[in-house]
């Protein structure tokens, strides 16, 4: 058994580059997903019914589709429409678009739970449109929804593992390579599991940091 872990150690570069790729994938799609959610959420809350309804269908649709199938469609299905993306682009697009829907719904939930008056004060003090959202509405939303957004980040990390199936060299893919090259399945995958755990612990630490900021403000 110790020999197995020694083999994994000898392949540490592969594993670390997998961890690096998982981190890059997760961070990029979390940021891009949040940015898209910042557009989707006001649309969900819009008084223009058609706009709210269109975005609602997209958001609920995404929440009913398994991520892996969505990633398959982006990677294998889009070429039918003449859109051909490599595995990195498809992986990033799939993770980003899919989780943007979840993040938008999270922010909407937090928005509905916010008191109305501070937002109204923003309007009364001359804020409107995107500036009202960015300066007055959004910051308290991010603070209030911090823990839930953190959970979603963990979900993004976990969903990124699905992308091993389209041969994206992320952490699980690296562990698979090591296992098939040296036949050390336990050592290879359990190492990956603990690296995922570490990643999530970092996210949780970040969340509790945000929560400290938030508790000073409520």
């Amino acid at each position: 058994m110790i020999r197995d872990f020694a083999i994994v150690w000898s392949e540490r570069d592969l594993l670390l580059s997998g961890l690096g790729n998982t981190t890059i994938l997760s961070v990029l799609s979390a940021i891009a997903g949040l940015v898209i959610a910042f557009v989707l959420t006001p649309a969900l809350m819009s008084k223009r019914r058609w706009l709210a309804l269109t975005v609602r269908v997209f958001v609920d649709g995404m929440r009913c589709v398994p991520f892996l199938l969505f990633a398959y469609i982006v990677y294998y299905g889009l070429p039918s429409f003449g859109i051909r993306l490599d595995n990195w682009s498809s992986g990033l697009v799939a993770l980003t678009v899919y989780h943007a829907a979840y993040l938008a719904e999270i922010l909407r939930g937090a928005w509905v739970a916010q008191p109305r008056e501070p937002i109204e004060a923003g309007v009364a003090f001359g804020f409107s449109g995107p500036r009202l959202f960015r300066r007055i509405i959004l910051p308290p939303l991010l603070l209030a929804a911090g823990p839930v957004i953190g959970n979603q980040m963990i979900q993004i990390v976990k969903d990124s593992a699905f992308l091993t199936i389209i041969a994206l060299p992320e952490l699980t893919h690296a562990a698979s390579s090591i296992q098939s090259r040296h036949y050390v399945p336990f050592a290879a995958f359990i190492t990956a599991v603990f690296l995922y755990w570490g990643l999530c612990l970092v996210i949780e630490a970040g969340v509790s940091g945000i929560d400290r900021l938030a508790s000073a403000r409520r």
Partner: peptide
């Protein structure tokens, strides 16, 4: 036009 609200309506994040 300045406005003062019943429930203060201060912005909590500032």
């Amino acid at each position: 036009i300045g406005m003062v609200f019943q429930h203060f309506a201060l912005w909590p994040h500032l």
